[in-house]
Every structure is written in structure tokens, then in C-alpha cells.
Design a binder for these strands. Structure first.
Lengths: 128, 128
DNA sequence: TGTACACTGAACCACATGGTTCAGCAACAG
DNA sequence: CTGTTGCTGAACCATGTGGTTCAGTGTACA
């Protein structure tokens, strides 16, 4: 099962523009701390902290070769993140289906009880 | 274009087990603050704060009807999140393709320069 | 050997987050 | 009208986050 704490870390790691930028950058291939720091206009120490967050989250792996640290995209937390992402996709799609059907019928005013009976408790199990 | 700040909020909102639980719960249909607080074993005020975070992130919408507040899944930030999620999917898949090809050739030891030349700078544009 | 470079650890800072308690306030039930 | 219910705002607290500076440490290279 997916450890909730690891999911926390993965999503939290994504919740920062600088770190998303690092991931985007690493999508083009490995980079060193210095190379990552330059476009970000940030201290080496600052970037190192971000990379560390990404590494702990399992989204990036690093390796010190000589005096530089090579950073690249990691795969550890990939499956977990994917699973949850598609879980939420299904959640939202289901919600959208309900909404669409609902608004087709009621338009402006609304009744909160339109989807509370049939699919109840079937998605709960997927998180454990 | 997607506001980076809104993405920050969306991912940050997902980076908490309690809030993911709220989303899961709302996948079964609308709920009140009290109904959300019970399974979480948390104060109403505490839950209210989480719901507020989710609402600001656009993942949940709420509406005060009478003295209760109905909470349900929102759709505002859905498209943005989807776009970024699939962006990262592509990023990782591309990385995985590279890795797979790489490990097929090199197995244990590795050479950092295996993917740095061909696909450079082509995915950068999708973020704006 | 000496110097420049890439990085790191420690200390520090301001601010955000996740939670609480407590005192209300508005709405419903009787 | 009164009491209960559901929620809310304010104040507070501990901890985490995002960033800095500065003083190293280890590696590459002339």
C-alpha cells in the first residue's frame, strides 16, 4: 500500500514553482546543482534544499560524481503518484458525470441529494 | 495560462492526508463540516480550515444553506491540475523510456550523458 | 603545490501550516 | 422565547518551509 506520508511528500514537493521548474529542467536530462541554480536565480544552498525535498519525495535521484552532484528524475514515487492521480481523476470524472446529468435537469437551482445513494462507499477502499 | 500560484495551492492542498480524505469522502456526495469532522476525529474549526484550503485551491466548493455548510467537489482547478498531471506523466514516461533503453544497454554501471541531446527544450512550451 | 570551483552544513530569519480553545452568532426545534 | 445545533472568528502555539549568509571541505586543474 501507499504510505500516506510519502504521498504527502510527493504532492508537497510538487507544490512549489521552483521545484516544478527543476523537474521540467531535469526532463531535458541530468543537471548539476549549479546548472539548476542559474536559471532560478537562487543560492546554491537554496537549490540544494529544493533538490533534497524532491529527492526525499522520490521524484529526483542524485549522485555525487567528483565534486559535482548529478541530479536526474527519479522513479521511486512515480507509481504511487500515478495511482493517486488516476484515483482523483476517476473521482472528479464521476463527479463531473453527476454534475452534467444534474445540470441538464435542474440548470440554476440545485438539490444536494442527486448522487448520494448508488455508488456510496465503493471508492473508499482504494486508499488503504 | 495556468497561474503558478494556483498550481501551488492545488498541489499543496493535496499534500495532506486529512484533505485527501475529505476529497475521497466528497467523492461519495456532498457533506457538511460536521460530517467531515466526525471520521477525521478533529475539531470543526480544524476541518473548516482544511475545507477552506481545498476551496481556495479550487478543489472543493461550499455553500452555506441554512446553518449548515454543504461541501462538494469543485471543478475550477480541475483542468489545470489535469494539464500538469499529464505534463508530468509525459516527463516521467520520457525519462522511463530513456532509462529502459539505457539499462538494457548498460545494466549496473551508468553513464550520465545518455539522454542529453535529442529532445531538448521541446516540452518547455507546454507550461505556459 | 597552490588556487579556483562545486558543493555542503550550520545558523539564522520571516512567514506559512496545522492544530487547539473559547466565545460567540445565526438558524432551527419545541 | 428558549435551548440546542452547526458553524465561525480570534487568539494562540509548535513546527515546517523557503530563503539567506558564511565558513568550511573536498576535488580538479595549472
Amino acid at each position: 500500500m501507499v504510505q500516506q506520508q510519502e504521498l504527502d511528500r510527493a504532492f508537497a514537493a510538487l507544490a512549489d514553482e521552483t521545484r516544478r521548474g527543476i523537474l521540467t529542467r531535469l526532463g531535458d536530462g541530468p543537471a548539476t546543482i549549479t546548472e539548476l541554480a542559474m536559471p532560478a536565480g537562487m543560492t546554491l544552498t537554496g537549490i540544494r534544499k529544493h533538490v533534497d525535498v524532491l529527492e526525499v519525495a522520490g521524484l529526483v535521484t542524485t549522485e555525487k560524481v567528483g565534486r559535482v552532484r548529478q541530479c536526474r528524475l527519479g522513479t521511486e514515487r512515480l507509481d504511487d503518484a500515478m495511482a493517486w492521480i488516476s484515483f482523483y481523476q476517476r473521482l472528479w470524472e464521476r463527479r463531473l458525470d453527476g454534475l452534467e446529468a444534474y445540470f441538464t435537469l435542474h440548470d440554476g437551482t440545485h438539490d444536494p441529494n442527486h448522487e448520494e445513494h448508488d455508488t456510496k462507499h465503493e471508492t473508499k477502499g482504494t486508499e488503504s
